[in-house]
Simulated assay, not measured.
Amino acid sequence: MICVLGDVMLDKYTYGKVERINPEAPVPVLNVVEEKYALGGAGNVANNIASLDEEVVLLGVCNENGNFGMQMVELCKKKNIKYHFITDGRPTIVKHRFVALGYNQQLLRVDYEEKHPLDCNYSKMFVDKIVELDPNILIISDYAKGVITEDLMEDIKKQFKGRILIDPKPDNIHLYENVFLIKPNLKEASGIVGRGIKNNDNDVEKAGLEIVDKYNANVVITRSEKGSTLITLDNEIHHIPTEVREIHDVSGAGDTYIATLGYALSKKYDLVDAVKLANKASSIVVGKVGTATVSLDELFDKD
């Protein structure tokens, strides 16, 4: 079983037709055709794990009594995701996208969120639940919205003895010393080391070694079409290519990557083979439109 802890979000999509310009202002008028909801943020990581038929528990802040919170709960139930939500007064985070049909063009995004650190009393509830569940793998999905705090990470590292995988935000990197693995993309790795990183082996190796040395964790840097670079605690370096596919949408690919990495490690893959499987999963998902997942049949090429 895998636990995912982090900033859970609801992705709302309003699709419509654009046939005229607003006479009140030079903006298009969207005639609404349909609305859809999807799990976003840490919820998308959990959804990717569930799509691989692995037991997963999602932990995060969500106001279950509000309309958006109820949508989140319904999606979790539909996707067979167990959940443990805490309400601390802030609204459920929602990313509302307005999309023009025919053009598949996003016209506007409206965010509903309040960003502030989670109180330590609520953090303790999460830690107690993780200890109770005792998962094989704990994935921290950090979008820097306030759920992941210093108190929370200190308590997790003291009380949870399993493998912790981090999908980090650079501003919070100081929280992640001594975990099992940190997975930044190239932009995040640049923010962590404080300089731009060119997408070549030498530059990525140098940055990765710095992160490993400073934070005492295995590091895998995802590099888009160039695959991933894994740098282990023993300073072994593995450049792992990915299969080049037609890219339709990169949104959520990082969530698919760390979800598959956690899945593989829970199935006793070694780290190199786990990264290879995660590479494959993300290369599949970017060929799909919107926030998508990968199935076991796709991952293992079953007809």
Rank of each mutant, 00 (worst) to 15 (best):
D234W: 01
D297W: 02
V27P: 08
N67M: 12
Y257I: 02
D201L: 12
I166G: 09
K157Y: 03
G287M: 07
K145C: 05
N104P: 06
K183A: 11
G6Q: 00
I258C: 07
E225C: 06
G196A: 06
M70I: 13
E34H: 08
T232D: 10
I211C: 13
V275E: 13
C62E: 00
S282E: 06
V289L: 08
N200M: 07
Y176E: 04
V61F: 15
M1I: 00
E177L: 00
A25I: 13
S295H: 01
E210S: 12
E210H: 06
E34Y: 03
R245F: 05
T149C: 07
E35V: 00
K268A: 04
A50F: 00
G6F: 01
V294N: 00
I81V: 13
V286S: 07
D155Y: 01
V27D: 08
E113I: 01
G227I: 11
Y176F: 15
A207Y: 13
Y103Q: 15
R90P: 02
Q71S: 15
P241I: 07
I21P: 10
V193S: 10
D201R: 14
R195G: 06
Y112G: 02
K276P: 00
K78I: 03
D151S: 11
D297I: 02
G41F: 05
I284Q: 00
K302M: 09
I221K: 03
Y215I: 02
N136V: 01
K82W: 11
G287A: 13
L10D: 05
P26L: 14
V250T: 15
D201W: 05
C76M: 05
G208E: 08
A189P: 06
D134K: 14
V289C: 02
F160D: 05
G43N: 09
E225N: 12
V18D: 07
M1G: 12
T14V: 14
V204N: 11
F300Y: 14
E154W: 02
V219G: 09
H248P: 01
E113A: 00
H116E: 10
L75M: 11
Y83R: 04
G43S: 05
E34W: 04
A253S: 15
I237W: 04
I237V: 14
G69W: 02
H238G: 12
V179E: 07
A46W: 04
H248T: 11
F85N: 01
I240R: 06
K187I: 11
